[in-house]
Design a protein around this nucleic acid. Structure first.
Lengths: 130, 130
DNA sequence: ATTCTTATTGCAAATGGTTCTCAATAAGCA
DNA sequence: TGCTTATTGAGAACCATTTGCAATAAGAAT
């Protein structure tokens, strides 16, 4: 059993992520914490994001549309993500009425589904007007 | 207006992808066509997959769970994907009753959604038994 | 058929997000 | 206050994907 330590870096990364309602990349998070942690390294950002995800404190969004970067979400309450296939924008939507339905349907396939992990791909307003 | 040419490579890649009901990676597709195209290069696989996706002949699945590779789907009829967050397995499911509902809900957010592009993340039978 | 244009290929090198190595640092128990 | 070792910072390594370029081959024109 390995103890875990509460480091300044880990604390600040989580705080920043909680405060924001976007879905920043590791690089963006790096920029966000830089004023508070001028010496922090990108590797530390990645390591802490992985740690926090394993602890269930944050979500890692691994869908990459036209950008090969993961994004992170500091809010773990059940919600869904609308992802624009063109510009990669991610929009939160509240859990709609068909969650229950999905769960039943999906049980047939042996899948266990968490409401927080449904991603719907489409085109955002801007991109669909082109 | 640039003409497009029907090359042996392009034809075989699409045929192989159509024949199969899995969601192979570029590397796996490379292995699949190697017997028919012993001199083919991985770059050609990637270029043709991009081409075929732009033509709407195949789907590119950009969600990467525990594997940093894109996957491809030779079947473009509306269907959804169940993706296992742990092992990355992708299962096709037929379009269920809540498609309509989703579309209406999502219109509120300005999103245009195509049935083929809904991905539901969860745990497959094997992984949920651990 | 043959020629000609240029889209496409194969190879190798480049790219870029993420992970890893390792010595130095610091959290927090004794 | 000292001590153990989890964590950090810096840079190198990794690896899926993309790109540059000369060679090849579709397929239209002759």
């Amino acid at each position: 059993m390995q103890q875990t330590r509460q480091t300044k870096q880990r604390k600040i990364i989580l705080e920043k992520l909680r405060k924001v309602h976007t879905h920043p990349t590791a690089e963006e998070i790096f920029q966000m914490v830089l004023p508070l942690l001028p010496k922090v390294s990108l590797a530390t950002i990645y390591r802490n994001l992985e740690f926090l995800e394993k602890q269930g404190e944050i979500l890692k969004l691994e869908h990459k549309n036209n950008e090969s970067k993961n994004r992170y979400d500091g809010h773990t309450e059940p919600h869904r993500h609308l992802i624009c296939k063109k510009c990669g924008e991610i929009v939160d939507i509240s859990c709609c009425c068909c969650c229950q339905m999905n769960k039943k349907d999906l049980a047939k396939y042996g899948f266990t589904v968490d409401d927080g992990f449904i991603e719907i791909l489409g085109l955002c307003k801007k991109c669909s007007h082109k």
